[in-house]
Design a protein around this nucleic acid. Structure first.
Length: 553
RNA sequence: UGGGUUAUAGUGUAAUGGUAGCACUACAGAUUUUGAUUCUGUCCGUCUAGGUUCGAAUCCUAGUAACCCAACCA
């Protein structure tokens, strides 16, 4: 009696296709161009394509759409494979559109032989001007009526490298007056004397997207070819080519791409951020790239859950990043061990605790026994969070203040007796006394304290660099603002704390392990951590009810 | 101004002629040795105007708004 989850529109199509017997199984594909790193928008597509195959017992190919050699690189191929894998998906076949160059060339020859394609000598500007406009029909190219023989000869010359880049193209012969601009004799092959990351210098003509994508789908017998909304106008051409070529009829379906608040989601813009140094790399933890989010400490599980929750439909959307943060906290809450770290330290001296003494206290690693426990050293001098002390306590303040009492997590109850300030008025030391009978788990005092704060023993603490990340942009939708999207970058998206203190149990941590720094947030070990220097990334803060309360004034 | 696509709480997404539901957010409360988690509750919605129907988010008509299309990019 599981609750039936409603189907998205693509699932409805698939179920209808399966039921009618049109197909007996589904084959999808994820078709990235290897010209950039994958981002959370791709994750939506990956989860959709692979998820559909998983749900309906089919398979998914990973196919690189590598038809433009000047933009594509092996580095990107490698990162894409790593990201898809990390997200938890396994492709049936690793394929490349370039694997089909020979067949694709054959298809082009077929089209010419059928009188459905011609070689055009016009240059880019001429072709564009003859194309007309959305409200105005195009005009035929003067080369449109060449004979099949002439076209065959010319196309063969193109292939053999007899012509320079841009001097000729092969166009499908469809309808220069079509309402759909993509049907006005689209270019299907162009000359590029460029080195291809896989085929090397074998080719100097390359198919355009429209003459590669659908044909590759068809060659692979893809049943449901799922892409984003902006390809809707391409579908007519997609179907036309398959029909004229008389090949396997793959079908294209379009869904709305993901947009998310406070970030940008185009490879072009992300590339700019990297190249112009607004972020340090594609995997900068502020980036919405999969590698950036991974480095930031997001889990694959949480990203999959997010993609599940945002749904699949055809309307434009702008997802609130707080949903992603919710998914991340939800998963990390289950899996992260709790430890103590102090980011903005101020010293707390327990005046009635013996000098030079220390003791190991048992602390739970999580909310229940399954997380286990660890030992944490306690001593006379502790670091606590500056923010946890208020000289003149606000209303509803549960933390430290002159005369106030708090529990030190997993340790003792302390009472603040006094504090010292420097000449600038900054608190430099807080003095307090502790109640020896109030030891955590063994408290016989009967005191009820409202607040519990975290701490680390000054003598035992480890120094660490902690990097706090905030949203990359100051506005919800930077792409829709006036002017350049880069004008809206948040200058405070990265705050580095060079000398935070963390408890000694973190001495030999493994890169990318997730922790909860109690009361502060989820953090993970950055790849730049060395035996000499610990580096943590804040994945996401904890929800902070006090911050809200404080804002009210 | 041609063609295409889409309109349901603040944000997403269901309801396929029959009680407008779910999640996030926001707000309020309970529990809490994390002001976390957990739990409970509250606010808020069918683009507009007509029509068909016992009954319309859903069907019809006319509007309106948003997005996409004129790269030898994908």
């Amino acid at each position: 009696m599981s609750e039936e989850k409603s189907l998205n529109f693509i699932e409805e199509i698939i179920e209808a296709d399966l039921e009618s017997g049109k197909y007996t199984s589904v084959l999808t594909r994820f078709p990235p161009e290897p010209n950039g790193y994958l981002h959370i928008g791709h994750a939506k597509s990956i989860c959709l394509n692979f998820g559909l195959a998983l749900k309906y017992g089919g398979a998914t190919n990973l196919r690189f759409d590598d038809t433009n050699p000047v933009k594509e690189e092996t580095e990107y191929v490698d990162s894409i494979k790593e990201d898809v894998n990390w997200l938890g998906f396994t492709w049936a076949k690793e394929l490349y559109a370039s694997d089909y160059f020979e067949q694709l060339h054959g298809f082009a020859v077929t089209l010419i032989q059928k009188g459905l394609a011609y070689v055009d000598d016009a240059d880019a500007d001429e072709i564009a001007s003859l194309k007309g406009s959305p409200t105005e029909a195009g005009k035929d190219s003067p080369y449109r009526n060449r004979t099949k023989e002439e076209n065959l000869e010319l196309f063969s010359g193109m292939k053999e490298g007899r012509y320079p880049d841009g001097s000729k193209v092969l166009r499908a012969k469809i309808d220069m007056a079509a309402n759909n601009m993509h049907m006005r004799d689209p270019i299907i092959y162009r000359i590029k004397h460029a080195h291809h990351h896989r085929t090397g210098d074998k080719w100097c003509i390359y198919p355009m997207y429209d003459f590669a994508h659908g044909q590759s789908d068809s060659i692979e017998n893809i049943t449901h070819s799922i892409c984003t909304l902006e390809f809707i106008p391409h579908r007519e051409l997609y179907d036309w080519l398959i029909e004229q070529l008389e090949i396997f009829p793959s079908k294209q379906y379009e869904f709305a791409r993901l947009n998310m608040t406070y970030t940008v989601m185009s490879k072009r813009k992300l590339l700019q951020l990297v190249e112009e140094g607004y972020v340090q790399s594609w995997d900068d933890p502020r980036m919405p790239t999969i590698s950036g989010m991974r480095r930031r400490g997001f889990t694959a599980e949480s990203i999959r859950n997010f993609c599940d929750r945002i749904g699949v439909a055809k309307r434009e959307n702008l997802i609130d990043v707080s949903l992603l943060e919710f998914c991340v906290r939800e998963d990390l809450n289950k899996l992260a061990s709790r430890v103590m770290a102090v980011l903005d330290p101020v010293k707390l001296i327990i005046t009635n605790y013996p000098d030079g003494q220390s003791e190991a206290l048992i602390s739970e690693n999580g909310p229940d026994e399954s997380y286990g426990t660890r030992m944490v050293p306690f001593s006379k001098e502790l670091w606590i969070e500056r923010e946890d002390f208020m000289e003149e306590p606000a209303k509803k303040w549960f933390r430290l203040a002159p005369g106030a009492v708090v529990r030190l997590k997993s340790a003792f109850i302390v009472k603040c007796e006094s504090f010292i300030k420097d000449t600038k008025g900054n608190v430099t030391e807080i003095h307090g006394t502790y109640y020896p009978e109030s030891k955590s788990g063994d408290d016989t005092t009967g005191f009820k304290v409202k607040g519990t704060i975290h701490w680390v023993s000054a003598a035992h603490a480890l120094q660490a660099e902690v990097r706090l990340y905030d949203r990359l942009f100051k506005v919800e939708n930077p792409s829709q603002e006036e002017g350049d999207f880069k004008d809206y970058i948040n200058p405070d998206s990265l705050q580095v704390i060079p000398n935070a203190y963390v408890e000694p149990s973190l001495k030999d941590v493994g890169v990318s392990t997730n922790y909860q720094f109690i009361r502060l947030g989820y953090f993970c070990v950055d790849k730049e951590t060395t035996p000499e220097k610990l580096v943590f990334n804040r994945t996401v803060s904890l929800k902070d009810a006090w911050a809200k309360e404080a804002k009210k004034g």
